[in-house]
Design a protein around this nucleic acid. Structure first.
Lengths: 213, 213, 213, 213
DNA sequence: AATGAATGAGTCTTCATTCAT
DNA sequence: GATGAATGAAGACTCATTCAT
């Protein structure tokens, strides 16, 4: 029994290694430009072997996308939202999102790629399901915190919590997206001094300002 | 002579027609997947003719991108921000952005594509310059309105106007992006009732809430 | 009457101008690489106009080839082989050939291009005929001089004059070809000091040595 | 392991087969006209496979060129220049060159193609080096024989040996080139009876006549 | 006569995928 | 399981030639 389990573990380990190699290649070369050969080389495997672990190039991409979702999920779970007050927890959640964007900028960039969503869900594998759910989880968590805030009387109650959650997510995501994209653009450097960290801090404050009673 | 002028006009018209055809193909198939042949067919032209008007596939894409920027710019210029109060003008600007996203969803989606920015600017043609400027114009306009609002005493003065402009843009962009992407997803439909229009209206209100004194 | 003659002259002049432009392009870019567009541009004409004067790209190349033959012929005719002695005339003919190679190195290089011979003769135009003849003319002249030399008793009589002519031509042509090709090669520079002029002078002397009685 | 060695051998064999197929296509159609597809078909391989063995169309051409140089080199090495006298050895070397031109007329024709020299040397691979050397080797051998002849007192000593070597090579090459090109031309058939073999024999005799004391 | 826009067949090259070993 | 040679279907781009104006 132990043998087949070990084999299974090894297989998953190798699959994971391939995903890491793929990440490296995809993110440095660009997903649409990087080739399977390059991934194989990075993984120090033959091209044929890759196809033992992934049916498709697409499936490989989906796996990378999926891993990004997992990373986000882990960071959310890992962050102990300790404070008792809903508003503070929302603040903390915003910071987690920022941390994710900073640690995994390329994964962050994938979050809103329409094409990838289609890809990741075409196969109705259980993986794909969880993938979407991981997207929803952030929203759901936000919604719950908002409800808590409303109950505490700290958050305005004239907006549907689910809707507010969506908006809050969109707001913070948009700011991070624009800021981290233009971080290296001269044009925008001239426009305002750029420091992703402080900009997002300000943003969170402004968002909070918009939702408190 | 009128004759050479007409020729010139016709040539530009044809170039424009090609861009429209390219838009159709690129947006339906996806920019990375669509081929030059497909664009040629859509434009009812031979492949060779396309290359008379565009040096490259890249230049073709850049032209499409550029047109999106133009469309946005036109809508911004076209919208007479009539109200005298800065806050109301900002609201109006937000609605213009929403209108743009609704009328030209695919162009809207391109706004933040890193790769395209690179593409559109690689050629240091005057066109490329105006392209970037059109991106900055929105920001600049926002900044001016914010400054006006601060002077009017209606907008908080503890945040640098340029920075605030960037944030406001990010916020509204993010909400529209997420909302319009997930509009057709069952998962999100279940999460909250989806109506891009009303969601953005709420968003604008929340943003305004965040920036007023 | 004068009008149509003038038109005719102008037409031939233009045709000639095109050939000169084609030479420039073909010789600098390489015949196989240069395009009709480039020739048109060099001739400051539209591509369509070129096809009024030349049926084909091939015909254009043939015309250039033909012009080379003409140039050689003119130089041969122009050189008054004054000396009375056959051997000296042959020497002079060799120098003419060298002069041709120096003045028109690219035309010289075309002389032995198999492909061009085929091209130049495919159309059985009178031009093509004269083209070959101009090739033969050199040989014929050589043969006559050799016969004269034999009669004078200065040239050995154990070799058929026609055959000897062919050989002499081949000898001098080969030396010029190799020398002028490798003139700019570092490898050959190291092998022996290069001076086309003096090498050919030596060659002529050696050839003469080989044919005198 | 013998297995990987066999694989290696097979791969080289295949590479060699492709070169042979390329030779067939290039020489019958003309190097500039023949296409990669035609080579692939001749090699009974898919086009893609060709690109596993050769990076480029250019590299393929260079390989063919290189093989020609190898063939010449082998024939030179293979010919035991037995006679003790320098003059006789030079005669023998001339015959080897003739044999090469007869056995591999197309490779012979490539020897002086400027463009190919550039091609074959652009990649500064060791192959390319040996390629040039093989060209020089003939010259060097000639020079040594000439020096020997001078020492023996059979060859005139008023001409620099290196220069004489170059000239002798040019002479014999030129005669073979012209003769083998025009061999099939009616025009030249009329001019003198054509028999490559006997013409070159005569040529060698004439050259020898030109260099002996 | 001159133009130059339009054509489309043709070329090289790439790359995801398969399969015999 | 692992390999990597082989495939062939595309794809981007070129260019000689034509033809309406």
């Amino acid at each position: 029994m132990g043998i087949s389990e070990r084999k299974q573990r090894e297989k998953e380990q190798r699959r994971h290694d391939i995903i890491l190699a793929a990440e490296g290649v995809f993110f440095s070369k660009g997903i649409h430009v990087a080739t399977v050969d390059e991934v194989a080389e990075a993984a120090e495997l033959s091209k044929g072997t890759l196809y033992l672990y992934f049916k498709n190039r697409e499936e490989l991409i989906a796996a990378v996308f999926h891993r990004g979702m997992d990373l986000l999920q882990q960071m959310m779970v890992g962050s102990s939202l300790q404070s008792s007050k809903a508003i503070d927890k929302i603040r903390a959640l915003g910071r987690v999102y920022l941390d994710f964007a900073k640690k995994h900028p390329d994964h962050f960039a994938l979050l809103l790629e329409k094409e990838l969503h289609r890809l990741a869900m075409d196969d109705s594998t259980p993986e794909a399901q969880s993938c979407v759910e991981s997207g929803l989880q952030l929203l759901t968590m936000l919604k719950l915190l908002i409800i808590q805030g409303i109950q505490e009387g700290s958050i305005r109650n004239d907006i549907d919590p689910a809707r507010m959650a969506l908006i809050v997510w969109g707001q913070i995501h948009g700011v991070i997206a624009i800021a981290s994209q233009e971080e290296h653009s001269d044009h925008f450097q001239k426009f305002c001094s750029f420091d992703l960290e402080s900009i997002v801090t300000t943003t969170i404050e402004m968002i909070v300002n918009g939702i408190i009673k």
